[in-house]
Design a protein around this nucleic acid. Structure first.
Lengths: 195, 195
DNA sequence: CATGAGATTTACCGATCGGTTCATCTGCGT
DNA sequence: ACGCAGATGAACCGATCGGTAAATCTCATG
């Protein structure tokens, strides 16, 4: 019970933090929103930062599970999967309450790289990059690590642009760019030849 | 005097906000850091948000001036200038106190698109994109608007990644990707032919 | 039913938040 | 020297911040 209660608190805190930001969401608001008392909250989490770290762990798990699942549903070949990432992003951006990436926002509010919250955010990005690199390797990219980093640049750029400009089609801009990068990074199999 | 005093306040506030973030920098800290009294501060700026907007206006001016100047110093042809943007970014990322993009951070803390702070940040990005599009047009890109948006995606991605991962070489990853995009978007003149 | 351990509630802590009130100080025209 | 306006300083406002102490409730076991 205690564990699942904790999980429920983390889930609700995730919602609130994602919606309103970390600094702007006080413990009192969290307590009011979860129904639990402040003392109970502080029995589960020693400090607010501890709660935030737990939230980021859940977000990391949720997001990476979702993205990998969606990528693998949308396409089968490694090459197509690299592109499918941007279709998945497009679905995410279209969500009613899309509010950018929780880890980018966390690193904006906790800027010191030594801060555990910042470090956890960096680790999330590292794990995602490593996943993309694995696919890039399967796709026979000449330099899978470089390709993965570049696709990630497009992804991060699309994430902040979709939030800042609100414009639709951001993911598609990124996807078209990714296609061009792929054609160059992968000794082409069936990909259309240039000019 | 009054105007330059105001400017000095904005300059010092910019430093503090960039270093510590908007929410984490209270008016008391600002007052202590600028030496001015709280009453004077609130005579120049009706609210904290007004001060932040003034800071963002200054930042927009400073940053766009710096970037365009640096781009035009580093390269002469439009095509090379599009690439030179990433060399300029590299210089920025290497600065000791580099802490990501002020506008991305502002939009992280003020998420509502209707919020003037968020809107001002979006406007900054729009103006930068328009500047890049102008160069892309001069470079005879087939679709200058699309190319500009894609280069901006690489730029935004590089900005957040440089802050989050701290890794060096981020700007170069982006530049290499940009080169490939350029080769595709511009009916090649002297650019190396593919394979 | 008594009791003791754990969880929960209530009330509170000092610090800081954005912002204001009002008394004092400064400098300038007369 | 005087009076006055505008700038300044300090003290203060209620609200909220993250976090805690102590009283109260819950409930399984003897």
């Amino acid at each position: 019970m205690s564990a699942s209660k904790r999980d429920e608190l983390v889930r609700k805190a995730l919602k609130a933090f994602y919606r309103d930001g970390f600094g702007a969401t006080g413990m009192d608001k969290l307590v009011a929103e979860t129904g639990v008392s402040k003392t109970s909250m502080y029995k589960h989490f020693r400090t607010k930062d501890d709660l935030i770290l737990a939230v980021l762990r859940l977000r990391d798990e949720n997001f990476r599970n979702w993205l990998t699942r969606r990528i693998e549903e949308l396409a089968k070949s490694p090459r197509k999967r690299l592109l499918a990432m941007f279709d998945a992003l497009d679905e995410w951006f279209a969500e009613e309450n899309y509010r950018s990436c929780m880890f980018i926002k966390a690193s904006s509010e906790y800027q010191d790289p030594k801060n555990p919250i910042h470090a956890a955010s960096a680790e999330h990005k590292r794990m995602l990059t490593s996943y993309i690199e694995k696919i890039a390797t399967l796709a026979d990219a000449k330099n899978p690590a470089l390709l993965a980093r570049q696709l990630m640049l497009l992804k991060e750029g699309a994430i902040v642009t979709a939030h800042l400009q609100g414009r639709t089609g951001v993911a598609d801009d990124a996807k078209q760019a990714a296609k061009i990068l792929l054609d160059h990074a992968i000794p082409t199999t069936q990909s259309r030849r240039i000019t």
